[in-house]
Each structure stands twice: as C-alpha cells, then as structure tokens.
C-alpha cells in the first residue's frame, strides 16, 4: 500500500476553506468558494485535526488512540481522504522535512 502524501507533511485548510458547525441544521459543514460540503462523522474528526500544526503522522496517532482502531487502517483512510482534499485544492500540505513525498 502506497501513501500519496508524506506522513510528515502538515496539512492545513486552504485560504477560503472553512470548517464550522452549522447550528441551524445541526451538522458540520466545510465551506469553500461557491460550495457547501457535508463531511461525514469520520471526516469531521479528521478535519478538526487539520490545523496547520499537526502532521499527518500525529493526526493518525491521535485518531488510532481515540477510536482504538488499528493504526495502519487509520493511516490508509486518512491518506486517501486528505489526498482527495489536496487534489480539490481544499487543503495544502507543507512538508517540514527535506525530501520527496513518501513512497
């Protein structure tokens, strides 16, 4: 299994993308230019940790601990989800270490 994003990379929401709780409808929403996206509960847990400080590794560690799920499974899911967001331009992933994306 190959990860798309470097595990040491630090994701953050792109400018113009905001996660917020929508009181009126009782749900979380991800707001982007001319788009309203509804993340499912698992996606919300990941997005809450996308803060421009935590690395993908840290996010995976924390989720694996919080939900007592096997780390490898969480890592695969988080990578796939964040890669999708990156492709849509909704997040940016900065890499604090020198080198290519993990393979």
């Amino acid at each position: 299994m190959t990860a798309t994003l470097a595990a040491t990379g630090v994701p953050k929401l792109a400018r113009g993308v905001r996660l917020r709780h929508d009181e009126a409808r009782g749900q979380w929403v991800l707001l982007a230019p001319e788009r309203v996206l509804n993340p499912d509960p698992v996606a919300v847990e990941i997005l809450k940790k996308v803060d421009g400080a935590r690395s993908i590794d840290t996010i995976v560690d924390e989720l694996a601990t919080a939900f007592t799920v096997e780390r490898a499974t969480v890592a695969t899911d988080v990578d796939a989800f964040l890669a999708g967001l990156a492709e849509k331009g909704l997040i940016e992933v900065t890499s604090p270490v020198i080198g290519d994306a993990a393979s």
Binding site: V36, L37, N38, A43, I46, G84
Partner: peptide, 8 residues
C-alpha cells in the same frame, strides 16, 4: 469517510 457535496 466522504465529502458529499450538497446536491442543490
């Protein structure tokens, strides 16, 4: 997990 675009 998924992101479902609000199907306006």
């Amino acid at each position: 997990m998924s992101l479902i675009e609000e199907p306006r």
